[in-house]
Design a binder for these strands. Structure first.
Ligand SMILES: NC(=O)c1ccc[n+]([C@@H]2O[C@H](COP(=O)([O-])OP(=O)(O)OC[C@H]3O[C@@H](n4cnc5c(N)ncnc54)[C@H](O)[C@@H]3O)[C@@H](O)[C@H]2O)c1
Ligand SMILES: NC(=O)c1ccc[n+]([C@@H]2O[C@H](COP(=O)([O-])OP(=O)(O)OC[C@H]3O[C@@H](n4cnc5c(N)ncnc54)[C@H](O)[C@@H]3O)[C@@H](O)[C@H]2O)c1
Lengths: 211, 211
DNA sequence: TCCAGCTTGTGACATAATTCACAACGTAAG
DNA sequence: CTTACGTTGTGAATTATGTCACAAGCTGGA
């Protein structure tokens, strides 16, 4: 089982590797990949080791090999199709973003409790009313969801998602979701992050322990 | 100098402390604060220690004391007024969010290169054209910025921000910003995070090392 | 008064994450 | 063929982060 930090780096490596492949590059050294991201060459090699991949001292790592292994880890029928709950300001921005973006994951369906917003298409994605949530998520075997509902509804909706079989939630509401241990939750708390950025900004420095 | 993880926790403590204060609670024990967040009681006490705060064994910590010290750390004229660059889908969602939210930080000004979008008011915030960026940021002594421009423009805009005196950037573009060591950057890479969530979702587990 | 039952503060410990440093490797040029 | 150079793979060291466990503190009730 890979750690969270590792998985984040792998995703970042993949983006750069795709770029490199598009530019016709077939092999890459750890120091090049490191320069593109924020990590050291040793870290890249350590990650490759954890993945069980190896390169050659003369040519480095094979770009297509790496991409293939990363796809095996990161792309999965249950993770590349996600549901989005709450098509408000943020939800719509995300729908537009995922639609435009060339990445693997797509928003397969969206839900909203507001009858004005459901039963229509928004940014190329069908928006359904909340009463069909469990049935549709079960039918499509969706396991991953993005939660963009107001704070006070977040826990109740999360509970419904989990009951419908969702095991990974990207939560934008500034609340700690109370779900079982088998469900992975990442809460992106933008208010908190902006306070953190402000903290280091006024001190005119990077955080301790940053390269 | 506090670590990034610590500052994030402090911000989270503050949210709950404000709630408690609004409900008339004057003192709080470490285990209560811990239950509201995702940390242990020992972690809360360690954070308080790092802050130089102390409580009493009988009544716990004084809510107003804590809030006062946290405000001293997190609120600063240079960090509570931020600039937002790029009023596209995401930028507008953030403008609406910060406007509605009761928090300390506010978006004081926004910029966009599109003449259709600048020289108007969006979500209660003036949007200016890019050519006035340096002057306005300097004049208001803005140090913190939120970057919501397309990936290919992110580095150029970041450079301008830094030249204008910005030392903290919350970056939403999936790019490593190349800025000096004295500038703090936090990149929220949503694509990367959704891949991480998917990774753990298909494996039906929390990440290693999570409570 | 004095004790029971909670708390805090913190040294010591445990775990996670990252970097160092170097032997072994592979190629290209001479 | 052989040397020079820059690379990989990885054990060990280092740093960062979180937890344990317990002495000492405080309060309310007997
Ligand atoms: N807008 C931002 O930039 C931003 C930034 C950070 C966090 N957030 C958080 O994201 C969440 C959504 O933000 P927003 O700005 O899009 O808010 P919003 O009010 O614009 O949208 C909320 C949407 O959720 C729908 N909704 C409400 N209750 C629901 C329910 N029980 N089930 C399903 N749908 C429901 C509403 O109809 C609406 O469409 C909030 O929790 C907010 O704190 C937003
Ligand atoms: N929309 C999302 O949910 C989302 C999610 C994650 C990341 N992002 C990232 O955030 C950024 C913005 O996303 P978006 O969806 O709002 O895009 P968008 O295209 O809707 O908006 C971009 C805005 O930036 C303006 N702009 C373009 N070039 C500029 C420049 N050089 N200087 C100033 N303004 C400029 C445009 O006029 C437009 O208003 C992108 O980098 C995107 O990858 C967006």
């Amino acid at each position: 089982m890979l750690s969270e930090k590792t998985v984040e780096r792998l995703s970042e490596y993949r983006r750069h590797l795709s770029d490199l492949q598009a530019r016709g590059v077939t092999h890459v050294f750890s120091n090049l990949l490191a320069a593109e991201t924020r990590v050291t060459a040793a870290q890249v090699r350590r990650d490759m080791m954890n993945l069980g991949l190896s390169g050659s001292t003369a040519t480095g790592y094979s770009v297509s090999d790496l991409l293939e292994h990363l796809a095996g880890l990161l792309d999965h029928p249950h993770s590349t199709r996600v549901a989005l709950i709450g098509t408000g300001n943020l939800g719509r921005a995300l729908l537009a973003f995922f639609r435009a973006r060339p990445g693997k994951a797509v928003i397969a369906m969206a839900f909203d409790s507001d009858p004005e917003k459901s039963n229509r298409v928004c940014c190329g994605c069908r928006v359904y009313p909340m009463d069909s949530l469990e049935a549709r998520i079960r039918e499509d075997e969706i396991r991953t969801a993005i939660l963009c509902v107001p704070e006070q509804d977040a826990n109740a909706v999360a509970q419904r998602l989990v009951n419908a079989g969702v095991t990974g939630i990207l939560n934008f509401a500034p609340t700690r979701l109370k779900v079982g241990d088998q469900v992975y939750v990442d809460t992106m708390d933008i208010s908190s992050v902006i306070e953190k950025v402000g903290y280091y900004a006024v001190r005119g420095t990077r955080a301790p322990g940053r390269k």
